[in-house]
Structures are given as C-alpha cells and as structure tokens.
Amino acid sequence: MSQSKHDAELGQRVHQFLLEQNLESNINFDIVNIDNADKISTAWTSLLLSLGFPSSAVDSQANRLTDFYLNDRFSGLNYDNFPRITPLPNSQNYKEPLIARNIEFISTCEHHLVPINGIANIAYCPQGSIVGLNKLNLVLDFFAKRPQLQETLTRQVLHVLKFVLKTDDVAIVIKAKHNCMSLECVDNSTEHLTFEFSGIFATDVSYKNLLLSNF
C-alpha cells in the first residue's frame, strides 16, 4: 500500500509549535474542516443571492466555491494536509547549503481575499539528516494555501523548517506581487520582498547572498 503524502500527526505537532511560538495564523482552526462544508456552502449561497446572482445557479456555484476553498485554496488551514517529510541519513556528511530556487506559489491576501503571486528561495544546511528538496516546496505551498500576510508566511515557513529539519541553519526569501494593489488602482509592478535568515545564514554574508542573488 502506498504511503500517504500527508502527515496529520506531524501537522498537529507543527500547529502546536506555531501556537507556542506565537506564529500561528489568526484563524479559528477548530471550525475549519470538511464537516462544516454544508455550513460554508449555505453561507456562500446567502452571499451570492445578496449580490444578485440568479437563484437557479446559486446552489451549484456555492458547492463549487466550498470545494475550491476547503480542498484547494485554503487547504493549508487543515493540518491533516501537512506534507509527509521523511528524513534520510546524511550519509555523506554534507554540510553546505541545500537550496531550492524560484519556487512559484500562489497565496491569498487575508485582508482582501485576492491572490498573492510570488517566488521564493529556501535553503538549509543539514545536520544529521536530509530531506528531499521538494519538501521545501511542499511546506511553502501548505502555508501559502490559507489567508496570509507575506511577512507571516515568511516567518512560518522558516521556523517550521527549523523545527522539522532540526537545524538552525535555515533561510527564506520571498518576492511577491499583491493583486489587491492593482484592484485599488495602484501600480501593480511593485514587488514586495521579505526574508528571514537563521543560524549561519544570519551571520555569514556570503551565505545570505546565495539566497538574494537572483532577487
């Protein structure tokens, strides 16, 4: 039997860690689950009717929106969806940075509920174990799939990777465009840069430059 790509038990430990570090999103996680799908669909129905959508189409639209947000766009609110991360022995005793560059992601502005389109560079220096580089992408994707602030996303990804990878040597740089700016008639060529460096990435300029060089 194939192993699940999700790890609910690790997800709950990550959730508790973020709560303890005061880094968790300002969301009532107790009510964000598939059991509330009917309640969410009813709320969508009420909203769509209030906006003047034809009643004949509202039920199917509400169901599609509920499925889209619960199972895709906001799936990062459910820690049962946290990615499975299986450490492997660092048999070669590799100590230099492992870097994932130009990771594309889409998140959602928590103020306006419109897309944030960004790219990220993420790196870590392994200690006793390593993980596949795609795991860095998956952790970013998990936290991007919820209402977010770019600053919060940056900090959550870095600190969770430190927690999961058991190393202080972690770094992340995010560059993103916020579509709420164009909707408010502001020039959306503006790109917002956030970053956080820990361990050797915070103290060694050459290591920092590995992450910042293509930004």
Rank of each mutant, 00 (worst) to 15 (best):
M1I: 09
H6I: 05
E9R: 07
L10T: 04
G11Q: 01
V14Y: 00
Q16A: 08
L18E: 10
E20L: 11
E20F: 08
E24W: 13
E24I: 15
D30W: 05
D30L: 07
I31Y: 04
V32R: 02
V32W: 10
I34K: 11
D35T: 06
D38N: 09
W44I: 08
Q61N: 04
A62L: 01
L65C: 09
T66V: 01
F68V: 01
S75C: 09
G76C: 05
G76E: 06
N78F: 12
R84V: 03
L88N: 05
N90M: 11
L98G: 03
I99S: 03
E104H: 10
S107P: 07
H112P: 12
P115E: 13
A123S: 04
C125E: 01
V131G: 01
V139W: 06
L140Y: 13
F143M: 11
Q148M: 12
E151W: 03
L153R: 06
V157A: 04
K162M: 13
F163D: 06
L165N: 06
T167F: 02
K175W: 01
A176W: 04
H178Y: 05
N179L: 14
V186S: 05
T194A: 12
F197E: 03
F197C: 08
F197Q: 09
G199Y: 13
N209Y: 10
